[in-house]
């Protein structure tokens, strides 16, 4: 177990190193850099100011020196300076992280609390009208593009309720914020819940055909006990894997959702910073997301051990 943890941690560090190199190189391969963009609008520019920014960003240094400088600064908690707004990058990034985390967690909760039970119901009521309905629902969840669904929701709110659930004013309480985020969370979580629902259904159907389920039924166990205590517990393993992967993929869905619902989160901010080639912001944010994804996968691996005692890792 200890050896596994060490091995897994080593792999995590290696993955993060690979990610950091990739992020750094990709950002420098795309055309244009922040100093060009800041001075883009033609007309007379101040060359001394441009040279100063290039020097501060280390753009005049070899790429390896630039990389080393970034990583060592990052290790010391120095995220650099956002040249578009002329503020420290940490001040720009920090307030946005909680917003996105809340949205992602809500979306994940939404997808699990709808996806898992509906998947179970669909499997238990296989080939009934309810099953057909749930399968169509899950299929539409997978087929509808997030931005389209989000816009439909907004249109419905404006048309039928006369207001729009977007982030125009910062909410003044935690619960108001949760209320405000629940609509976009549902929009982005709908796709994940559909995926979870389908996976739960197929996994449950497989388990429900096992001998021990038949035995449980013949011993007089109630349908609830059979379905939830015996079947679901064994069917949930692949679902946990997919929940872990979905947690990582959510960030992609959040870019669109944050844009449509005008949420000042990390995902939308990242896109805008990438367009402006705001290196300190993009590098650090992508690295942050990479860390979250790697840790989410690590957590899923650990959850396996808790959920299935049969799984043992060789020492």
């Amino acid at each position: 177990m200890a050896a596994y943890l060490v091995h897994r941690t080593f792999l995590m560090i290696l993955t993060l190193f690979g990610m950091s190199v990739l992020i750094f190189v990709l950002l420098r391969v795309v055309p244009g850099n922040i100093s060009d963009i800041l001075f883009d609008s033609a007309g007379f520019v101040n060359p001394a100011e441009k040279a100063r920014i290039e020097q501060e960003l280390g753009l005049d240094q070899p790429i390896i020196t630039q990389y080393w400088r970034w990583i060592s600064d990052l290790a010391q908690g120095n995220l650099g300076y956002a040249y578009v707004t002329e503020r420290p990058a940490a001040e720009e990034i920090a307030p946005r992280i909680p917003v996105t985390v809340k949205l992602a967690v809500l979306a994940l909760i939404f997808s699990v609390i709808f996806g898992v039970p509906l998947g179970v119901i669909s499997a238990v009521r296989q080939n009934t009208p309810l099953d057909y309905f749930l399968r169509v629902l899950s299929l539409s969840g997978l087929s509808l593009p997030s931005f389209w669904l989000a816009l439909l929701i907004l249109m419905a709110f404006v048309h039928y309720l006369g207001f729009i659930p977007i982030y125009t004013d910062p909410p003044d309480s935690f619960w108001k914020e949760i209320g405000l985020l629940s609509v976009p969370a549902a929009a982005v979580g709908f796709r994940s819940s559909a995926l979870i629902m389908r996976l739960t259904r197929s996994s449950m159907l497989e388990v429900l055909r096992q001998d021990y389920i038949r035995t449980a039924r013949s011993k007089g166990a109630s349908p609830g006990t059979v379905n939830y205590d015996h079947a679901l517990r064994n069917a949930v393993l692949p679902v946990v894997t997919i929940i872990g992967i979905e947690a990582a993929f959510l960030i992609g869905g959040l870019i669109v959702t944050e844009t449509v619902f005008n949420i000042p989160g990390v995902a939308r901010f990242l896109v805008e910073a990438a367009i402006w080639r705001d290196y300190p912001i993009v590098q650090n944010l992508v690295m942050f997301i990479a860390i979250v994804v790697v840790f989410a996968n690590f957590a899923v691996d650990m959850a396996y051990m808790l959920l299935d005692p049969r799984i043992k890792y060789a020492d």
Binding site: L151, G162, F163, T259, V260, F261, N262
Partner: peptide, 18 residues
């Protein structure tokens, strides 16, 4: 001023009286 980059969202927000 609220910055809303998505045109559909901002027009809907105007229509909703925001």
């Amino acid at each position: 001023w609220r910055i809303i980059p998505n045109r559909s969202t901002r027009i809907l927000a105007f229509v909703a009286g925001e």
